[in-house]
Design a protein around this nucleic acid. Structure first.
Length: 627
DNA sequence: ACGCAGTTGGGACC
DNA sequence: GGTCCCAACTGCGT
């Protein structure tokens, strides 16, 4: 810190990013503890988010609504305060603002994940060199991902039990801090040094071109069209209006939390696997994920509101019905714990968490259409895996025209609403990867990035690895059916009728398999399969069998994304040889016996139990069976 | 070395 | 609608 700046009363630049709220904000609290003379709340509108990063209209709209609401709340604390939106890359505009506004302290909520962590390290180093103090404080998650990994012996948290064991050693998350009721005013805001010429925005490829209905004007100036750091509009982004019914903002988040917790028994008995992915009006879950993602809702606020609701219910019931309280990890608190587990695991891998190559926790499976280049621009495979047929299947999946109504309805709901139920995500993710299409989870993850409002670099990549049996989960023989699974929740196909309206008049019996309906039924439904709705694009059962054998072979090979063999081509060659003449022999009776029920049953029948042992031969695991 | 659990499977059979 | 079996994974605890 230079001597002139150390004498200045604090002038705080408060950078909002993952914390679009005033409640439950340790970083904001720390900023105000400085008793700043001037307080500048800003949001940086990064052109990377608008041009180089595929982001659908619904997430963009949610973000705009959230920062609008935040600005409104700032003004409620001080009529002179508002959120200043600075257009430009943060690496450029943050140092420029610090200089122009004589900033002494840069304060923000720490973001441990993905690109943001890399970006922040760069900015922090630069700003510190200029003698400005940087205060970055955790607040987005309940626990520090780094601390969790250290307590887990330096290993990534690969199961909820290992995460829980590590978390137990840390102190329980504190109660949320209240929002401030007043704020200091900002000082002068000279615009010196703020011209587009000085800080050219990113040009070149516009990944969101397909969405735009007019030219992007929001980067014409750093301070917006009126020079007052206004919040950009969808029009300025060239975007058409959003299609979702989910609206952003801290006010909306707290209202939804309140409404959800008003039904105490629902909170107490919440069990994720029992909630229906087929329900949509209202959904069977809290639908608070977009608010947690943007920090409109604090994670401690959610945690303690849930805990208090359960305590209150328990008191009301005199503790008589304790057995009705759902246990960890299926309860609401457990949902938050999985989020924490993914944040910790992500921290252990950094940017590599979102790809296969270089990712030490991700199994190498020879998925079609996997990344050819990794985040560092390094070639991952000597030749592309997959061809036109796979491209066509991927497009059909993305656009909701696979010919499987359950999959198509979910994918259309995803595009329209920007949100789908957790188990709906499971269905379409399993279908795209290990279930039927054998397409890389990287393609699925980037589709969700584009279309989900609540997309999060940790939870999204983590769940895609989970569903594709690449990490966290390994029972690849458990495959979600496109008829059996939704039928467990809804035999009448409400979700299909809503999002695939061409199928609305099919009888319940055929709603998930309309191609099996006799022609006269199709005619009466006013929908001929193959003409008005696609015929299934693949044989669900046959593809499932093939996928399972391929995943099994990849498991036997036992390679992970950081193995050199996964990018010099030798892993793929080995798997192809495996497909030609399997090293692992799947013969009748040659099973690895691990189910003790079967063992016990056989013993009861007086049969000799089978013992099996697994060995590695030439790097390939073989299942050897001995009688 | 072994038993068993793992947030959320499918299908036959009663 | 509930129960059991299918087929067979990893990681953790003992």
């Amino acid at each position: 810190m230079t001597s002139s700046q150390s004498k200045l009363p604090p002038r705080v630049l408060y950078w909002f990013r993952t914390d679009l709220r005033l409640h439950d904000s340790p970083a904001l609290h720390a900023a105000l503890e400085l008793k700043p003379e001037f307080f500048y709340p800003i949001w940086t509108w990064d052109p990377q988010y608008v041009f180089a990063h595929k982001v659908g209209v619904n997430r963009c709209n949610f973000l705009l609504e959230s920062i609008e609401n935040l600005s409104f709340s700032l003004t409620a604390c001080n009529p002179k305060a508002k959120l200043h939106v600075v257009r430009g890359p943060p690496q450029t505009v943050i140092p420029a603002l610090c200089k122009a506004w004589n900033i002494t302290h840069l304060v923000y909520e720490k973001d441990t994940a993905g690109y943001a962590a890399v970006r922040d390290a760069e900015i922090k180093a630069y700003v510190l060199k200029e003698g400005i103090e940087v205060i970055d404080i955790l607040g987005h998650t309940l626990y520090d991902p780094q601390a969790i990994i250290e307590l887990n012996g330096g290993k990534p948290t690969m199961s909820i039990s290992s995460w829980s064991a590590a978390a137990k050693k840390l102190s329980s998350p504190s109660r949320p801090l209240p929002p401030p009721d007043k704020l200091p005013s900002p000082g002068d805001m000279p615009l010196a040094g703020f011209s587009r010429e000085d800080h050219p925005v990113m040009t070149g490829v516009d990944l969101n071109e397909a969405y735009r209905v007019s030219a992007t004007t929001c980067f014409d100036t750093m301070a917006g069209p009126d020079g007052n750091f206004s919040i950009p509009t969808m029009e300025e982004l060239g975007f058409p209006p959003a299609t979702t019914s989910i609206h952003g903002g801290e006010t909306e988040a707290l209202k939804r939390l309140e409404a959800y917790c008003a039904d105490k028994a629902r909170v107490v008995k919440f069990a994720k696997p029992k909630t229906s992915p087929a329900e949509f009006d209202p959904p069977a879950t809290t639908q608070l994920s977009p608010y947690l993602k943007f920090g409109c809702l604090g994670s401690r606020e959610f945690l303690w509101r849930v805990r208090d609701t359960i305590d209150q219910w328990d008191k009301d019931e005199n503790g008589k019905k304790n057995n009705e309280i759902t246990e960890h990890p299926e309860n609401l608190e457990g949902q938050l714990c999985f989020r924490e587990m993914y944040y910790a695991a992500e921290w252990s891998q950094g940017l590599r968490f979102g790809q296969i190559r270089g990712n030490a926790i991700c199994r190498f499976i020879d998925w079609r259409l996997q990344n050819q280049y990794d985040a560092d621009g390094l070639k991952t495979h000597p030749r592309p895996l997959g061809h036109t047929r796979d491209e066509e299947r991927l497009s059909a999946w993305k656009e909701g025209r696979t010919g499987f109504p359950w999959i198509d309805a979910i994918m259309r709901q995803l595009r329209q609403e920007g949100w789908i139920h957790h188990l709906a995500r499971h269905s379409v993710a399993c279908f795209l990867t290990r279930g039927q299409c054998y397409i890389s989870w990287e393609r699925g993850a980037e589709t969700f990035d584009e279309l989900l409002i609540d997309w999060d670099p940790c939870a999204n990549a983590g769940n895609w690895m989970w569903l594709s049996c690449s990490a966290f989960f390994s029972m690849y023989y458990r495959v979600y059916g496109v008829k059996s699974f939704p039928e467990k929740y809804d035999k009448t196909g409400k979700l299909v009728r809503k999002f695939c309206p061409e199928l609305v008049n099919f009888p319940d019996k055929f709603i998930y398999t309309p191609h099996l309906a006799p022609v006269d039924v199709q005619e009466r439904a006013g929908c001929i399969i193959g003409r008005d709705y696609p015929f299934p694009m693949l044989d669900e059962k046959a593809e499932k069998e093939q996928c399972m054998q391929r995943v099994k072979a990849a498991y036997a090979l036992g390679l992970y994304g950081n193995d050199p063999a996964t990018f010099d081509g030798s892993a793929v060659t080995k798997l192809e040889q495996e497909a030609e003449s399997p090293n692992t022999v799947y013969r009748e009776g040659q099973k690895r016996e691990t189910n003790h029920n079967i063992q016990k049953r056989k013993q009861q029948r007086g049969e000799e139990g089978i013992s099996a042992k697994r060995t590695k031969v030439n790097g390939i695991k073989k299942y050897l069976v001995q009688k």
